[in-house]
Design a protein around this nucleic acid. Structure first.
Lengths: 207, 207
DNA sequence: GTGGTATTTGACTGCCAGTCATAATCTGAA
DNA sequence: TTCAGATTATGACTGGCAGTCAAATACCAC
């Protein structure tokens, strides 16, 4: 973790690894991950191909790290936004607003191409889905907190545990995002999120 | 469409094409589509590689045809089942039953490996998602019919058109299936479909 | 210093989708 | 019947890419 106490060799190695990471990051922003070869990464990074495989087990392993870091960043964005919402809103309002924010970030910050690739990566055995799918992901915790508070306030049905409800809501957003990835550009992510949530939230509210 | 009126050459060509189709079908049942090379298909079919590309533009084009045919078959299964359900059930019951049937077929008839590959194929630019995703797909029509009948009977909220509701329900099933593809085997498709539908159907019913 | 280790290098392997020049076969018009 | 042209079939070959490996280099600890 600490940058200190590295001898020259270790510094050199860390530098090489970082150069690969940064070069890959830039290239992946330019084009689809599948269209970026390891050769092009090492060329951009100014290191050899053999070096690449010393620092990363495979191309997929590098992509995994990039995704993991990026998901972490995104979840911080969500958290920051959530804190900025005034607390005296209804639970359903908060969920709706957060959902809209998520749709915005997916569509505008991350973008369709990257999202599409991310979803595809879930189907590649070489890349673990853990960073995005883990129930320990910050996103699940956020929804869980909102929902358990909603149950406490009597705004949300209490016959299903908040963690389960959270997983259903996130699953739904994922379903809509999946649909968006495929139907793009004939599909408005934000709009469809709102419409679908309207139905789903009626199903989790107190009737 | 008709088998007649083919001269010797055309018969021969049709035979070759069919041999490729059948060989591919068998191989894809044995292993993941990505692990089946064109070379292995033509070897099994007993034709040359060049011949393959006379009949199919690409490996993806062949897979497309196989998927299209298979989706057609599956939709017929759904339809047959739907007809077998007694008509005097409530709309919500019918939808629940149909959803369970779909989950059964996906999990047991098609199976996890094939479903995973099918979902992955949506992210390959070489393979069109049209057979599964088209709103003209038989599945959408079936849900639409059930829902519009439900609206007519006053069991389903009437502020959203039945076609839109149908798309939301199918999207939800797709979302759960997606989750199942990734979380397998730690995820029970049938069970989760039922639980999610329970919430969603509360949201589309008359309150 | 020096022996051993971490790091780097790039040519090489193996795999696979797709191509192409060539050959074999059939058809239909003359 | 004939044969020129069209269809279909062949398989060696190309190009691109992920990953390997033996050899070279640079560094560290003793």
């Amino acid at each position: 973790m600490s940058k200190k106490k590295l001898n020259k060799r270790q510094k050199q190695a860390a530098e090489t690894k970082m150069k690969i990471y940064e070069a890959a990051k830039e290239l992946f922003l330019e084009k689809d991950v599948d269209d970026v070869s390891v050769d092009s990464i090492v060329k951009k990074a100014g290191v050899s191909k053999g070096s690449f495989y010393v620092h990363y087990e495979s191309k997929a392993a590098l992509v995994y790290v990039l995704i993991k870091d990026y998901v972490g960043e995104i979840d911080m964005d969500y958290k920051t936004y959530l804190k900025s919402i005034s607390q005296d809103r209804s639970t359903l309002d908060i969920i709706t607003l957060l959902t809209e924010k998520i749709a915005d970030i997916l569509a505008n910050k991350i973008g369709h191409d990257n999202m599409k690739w991310l979803y595809k990566s879930h189907f590649l055995s070489s890349i673990s889905s853990e960073p995005t799918m883990s129930y320990n992901r910050e996103l699940y915790k956020m929804f869980d907190e909102i929902l358990s508070e909603g149950i406490r306030k009597g705004e949300i049905r209490s016959d299903i545990p908040s963690t389960i409800l959270a997983s259903h809501l996130i699953l739904a957003i994922r379903g809509i995002t999946f649909e968006w990835c495929i139907r793009y550009p004939d599909y408005n992510l934000r709009e469809e999120c709102i419409k679908h949530m309207d139905i789903l939230l009626r199903g989790i509210g107190i009737q």
